[in-house]
Design a protein around this nucleic acid. Structure first.
Lengths: 213, 213
DNA sequence: AACCACCATAAACAATCGTTTGAAACTTAC
DNA sequence: GTAAGTTTCAAACGATTGTTTATGGTGGTT
């Protein structure tokens, strides 16, 4: 009868609602009712709300990290092409590949990433760190020779500056576009914004180490 | 008996707890108990939890915006000194002036700013926008001639990229420093991080418009 | 048919939430 | 010292939270 498995219906609803309102602000009852399933289904299939949150992240990160890993392997076969821009493009194109033109899904994912940082939810951060820490370290190893002047400390901080720029922008994507429409008269196309975001990050990464105050 | 007014005790506790856990995750009972006041005091003095949240922001933003305004006025008297770096320094030094060496307070403020964006809490965003929108527009007017090549659209987005970088970094300040200690062996001094953050933002703002992919 | 593992359902559970109440305690002024 | 006004207090309110339970139904195996 159920066209989609109950588990997936729950994950779909939870993903959208978490991204929209946050974890604590989303009750299991609103999740199950928008998913069209029984309230008890969450605890039956996932065990707890915390486990559901982690499952949402897992479904999201698993294919994305795999896609990034594959693209990094391709890039490593042409070492002369490794630079800041190509490394950043691995990320943006991986997201684009996994979620296609579905920007709703992509911005939902970014909002969730931002929530994982901003909301205390330590179990989420620990889950992500233990699960996908290796992928992040591999990326950092490739980025290092692309920024020859930087120390390890600078590399760490500039990477997280760039990460923060992307997460903040994407997680507030709709709100920012609405504000842009108000202030400038243009919403800005997705390509325009992503392209500007990428060059902002690249410029920051490249030049921050050389601009001593 | 009470050394500090009940109102201020509540605001102190709420500020710290909100920054640490978020709005929905912080109950009035934990606020009042850590403040050492009665539960009913919040509703008596503020009216509701929403009003308390806004009061926390008001106490924080009022002196900061005043300080920024004054520094902008000083800067405007020497128009030749207006550039990206000096404008960014207005912000960082204003925060530094208002909260002194109390980095706890400063990072709490940034976390709150991030929460205002990330958590849906529309009433918070509306409150801030209606209250301090003018200050932001004044800043944008000064920033525009400092980035001569940029269009209005680019100016808007690059400004919010930079804003996102700062908010994300500062709002996760402690967590990031802990990670830095893990990865690099150094926590990084506040001055080091702020200086790197500033040059990252300046480089992004300045060069993003010229790096077309 | 009988059994079985699996899943959906309605109902209830205890805990916690923001808010309200009415009386006690305090401060201030005359 | 008494009255009025302000603040604090313990207790309770109804609503909502995550979770559990007990009951039924379903499809497949023997």
């Amino acid at each position: 009868m159920a066209q989609k498995e109950t588990v997936e219906r729950i994950l779909d609803a939870a993903e959208a609602l978490f991204a929209e309102r946050g974890f604590a602000e989303t009750s299991l009852r609103t999740i199950t009712s928008t998913a069209g399933v029984n309230l008890a289904a969450v605890n039956y299939h996932f065990g707890s709300k915390k486990a559901l949150i982690q499952a949402v992240f897992e479904r999201f990160l698993e294919p994305l990290v795999a896609e990034i890993d594959q693209r990094l392997s391709v890039l490593e076969q042409n070492p002369e092409k490794i630079n800041v821009e190509s490394l950043l493009r691995v990320l943006s194109s991986a997201i684009y590949e996994v979620h296609g033109r579905n920007t709703n899904r992509a911005t939902a994912f970014m909002r969730l990433l931002g929530l994982a940082y901003t909301q205390s939810q330590a179990h989420v951060r620990n889950f992500i760190a233990s699960r996908y820490g290796d992928a992040f370290q591999r990326y950092a190893r490739l980025l290092k020779p692309a920024l020859p002047g930087a120390t390890d400390q600078e590399l760490f901080w500039h990477t997280h500056f760039a990460l923060g720029t992307a997460i903040f922008t994407m997680s507030n994507f709709d709100a920012l576009r609405a504000m842009a429409m108000n202030d400038t008269g243009h919403r800005g196309s997705v390509d325009f914004i992503v392209s500007n975001l990428t060059s902002f990050m690249a410029a920051g990464l490249r030049n921050a180490s050389h601009d001593d105050a």
